[in-house]
Amino acid sequence: MLAKAMKRAVYVMSLVFFMFIFAVAGVLYFGEQASGDLEHWGDLGSALLTIFGLVTLDGWVDLLKKVDSSGVTYSRLFLIIFILIGHFIFFNMFVGLVIMEVERMTKAREEESLQERKAAQKRKKQKINNEAADWESGECRLSQGSESRVLHKTEWETPVKK
């Protein structure tokens, strides 16, 4: 269990590290004071937010136009490589991890529900067995509302007089 959790943590940390490297590269390439895109690449925080937006493919075409207008060579290559690697590989891996965790939780809940049903069936069986044993011993339990009493065989075999 711990090994699976560590494996998943490594996947998520590799995605975060990959995003951090591209954010730093984006600040270096596109965050120049004179001709850069300071809104998206001016500092590391905004670059990380921009990179996250690229992973989710939110507004990547508009960002590509802004980066192209800055005149940096290979700007399209930078964004397309990040989108291909970041979105199609790492983002889908992250979504897969979330789906696997939901599936694991669903199986655990189903197992818990099954155990509860088995316990309820066991209680019902025990109650039926107890009632059968009482019947064989000549006792009959009567319950009416909050009152409960035991009739012996002699009492329940006698006819009721009207």
Rank of each mutant, 00 (worst) to 15 (best):
S35P: 04
S35F: 02
G36Y: 00
D37P: 03
D37G: 02
E39Y: 08
H40L: 05
G42V: 06
L44Y: 14
G45N: 15
S46L: 09
A47P: 03
L49T: 14
T50S: 14
F52M: 15
F52G: 13
F52I: 15
V55P: 01
V55L: 14
T56V: 12
T56A: 14
T56W: 09
D58T: 15
G59A: 09
W60R: 07
W60F: 13
D62L: 04
D62F: 01
L63G: 04
L64P: 05
K66N: 11
V67Y: 02
D68C: 02
S70Y: 00
S70M: 03
S70E: 05
G71L: 03
G71F: 02
T73K: 00
Y74M: 11
Y74I: 04
S75F: 01
R76G: 09
L77Y: 03
F78W: 09
L79R: 00
L79G: 00
L79Q: 06
I80D: 12
I80E: 11
I81E: 06
F82T: 02
F82Q: 01
L84E: 09
I85D: 06
F88C: 03
F88Q: 01
I89S: 04
I89K: 01
F90Q: 04
F91I: 01
F91E: 07
N92K: 13
M93I: 15
V95I: 07
V95D: 06
G96D: 08
V98D: 08
V98H: 08
I99K: 11
I99E: 10
M100L: 14
E101A: 07
E101G: 02
E103F: 06
R104D: 08
M105R: 15
K107H: 13
K107Y: 09
A108F: 10
R109W: 13
R109H: 13
R109G: 08
E111L: 10
E111C: 03
E112A: 12
E112Y: 08
E112H: 11
L114T: 10
E116M: 15
R117Q: 12
K118E: 15
A119V: 07
Q121W: 11
K122C: 08
R123V: 08
R123I: 10
K124I: 12
K124D: 15
K125R: 14
K125A: 13
K125G: 09
K125C: 07
K125E: 15
Q126G: 06
K127D: 14
I128N: 05
N129L: 13
E131S: 11
A132S: 09
A132V: 11
A132Y: 09
A132Q: 04
D134C: 03
E136N: 10
S137E: 13
G138A: 10
E139G: 02
E139K: 14
E139R: 12
L142Y: 10
Q144K: 08
E147S: 08
E147M: 11
E147T: 10
S148W: 01
R149N: 03
V150I: 13
V150G: 04
L151P: 05
H152L: 07
K153R: 12
T154C: 05
T154W: 12
